[in-house]
Design a protein around this nucleic acid. Structure first.
Lengths: 194, 194
DNA sequence: GTCTATATTCTGATAGAC
DNA sequence: GTCTATCAGAATATAGAC
């Protein structure tokens, strides 16, 4: 296939998204200019508009793809015992979020920079994820495996606790991923009343 | 006391800080202009510089004052039983943060927009607060009141869980502050092994 | 597909009148 | 202490050459 000189749509697109993800996570969406993203990729600012309609769309696509990846990767635990399903969720959440610190950071910090329509879509996807955990908690309460007064509050409490890991955990530190998973699972297991 | 026409230093100063706090929390530091803050206060942009050296100082002062307020308000629980001290901390944390959602939001979201020196100072104050909780956990482990493998991790896990409340809890909802305190305290108490 | 050049608007901050 | 006016630069986004 002949290709026009200077044409790199197949590799520039991912590079634009990678650069935007890293820069948005580091400095914040509003603080990052299209020129900075272009410089990181190695093109001029105008060239970015071959890959995104505008800066807002770039942010929205990053957040939506992250949420879709999360929902796709989430293990289907239907059929197991509530305690086992909860452990699977906890370990999955920690591992998945640990692999994508920049995307996680953006997904939680840049909600206010989305347009109302885009915000509603991201919230819808986030709700789906929360609902998966809440269903486990509700099933556990129904079978008396868990003692929880309000599964909605417990859902939010557990997700906040688990997601907070990304603010301090780095693999190079004194703790391995497994250490962190074990310790958080121990606290979660006890907190739900087991 | 005679006062020069147009002179309002005693009331404009707090109004500038209030407006900045609200706008920074809503839209983010980088996304808010000095002109927006001025418009909210009802003055021209140039007048703001009677109250702050620059935009960065405005952010830093808001964050530092919040952290100093937090440390000042933190009850001294030395001498009590670890479980009682932990309950006091949990209920205090929830109540204090519930009263200041904007300041809490800024204190956690705008760290990356601080200059290195300012960041170091805020981190120092945050560490002091975390240390207060960790001391309770360590004392509890030492007296076998708590079963925790790593008090540092537990500290970060509990603070993340409790602080997450500010993202969804509003007093107008179905739950009172006391409801929320009771439910979180129940989960925390169990998670530390009681 | 990428470039250069540019239109238009906005930014933080300052100077000097009142 | 606040105003108007302004500086110097940076922002997003677009147009047209190659």
């Amino acid at each position: 296939m002949a290709r026009t000189a200077g044409s790199h749509s197949d590799i520039t697109g991912p590079r634009v998204r990678d650069a935007a993800l890293r820069l948005f996570a580091r400095h914040g969406y509003a603080a990052v200019s299209m020129r900075q993203i272009a410089a990181e990729v190695g093109v001029q600012a105008g060239a970015l508009y071959n890959y995104t309609a505008d800066k807002q769309s770039l942010l929205f696509e990053l957040m939506r793809n992250h949420m879709l990846d999360l929902l796709t990767a989430l293990p289907d635990t239907r059929g197991g015992a509530p305690l086992t399903r909860l452990e699977t969720f906890v370990r999955f959440h920690i591992a998945f979020h640990h692999e994508r610190p920049d995307a996680v950071f953006i997904a939680y910090m840049e909600l206010r920079n989305l347009t109302p329509d885009n915000f509603a879509e991201i919230e819808r996807l986030r709700r789906q994820y929360e609902d998966a955990l809440e269903k486990v908690l509700r099933d556990g309460v129904a079978t008396s495996s868990f003692q929880l007064a309000d599964t909605k509050i417990s859902t939010l409490a557990l997700i906040a606790m688990l997601t907070g890991i990304t603010t301090w955990f780095r693999s190079e530190g004194r703790l391995s991923l497994q250490d962190v998973q074990d310790q958080y699972w121990s606290m979660v297991r006890k907190s739900v009343g087991c």
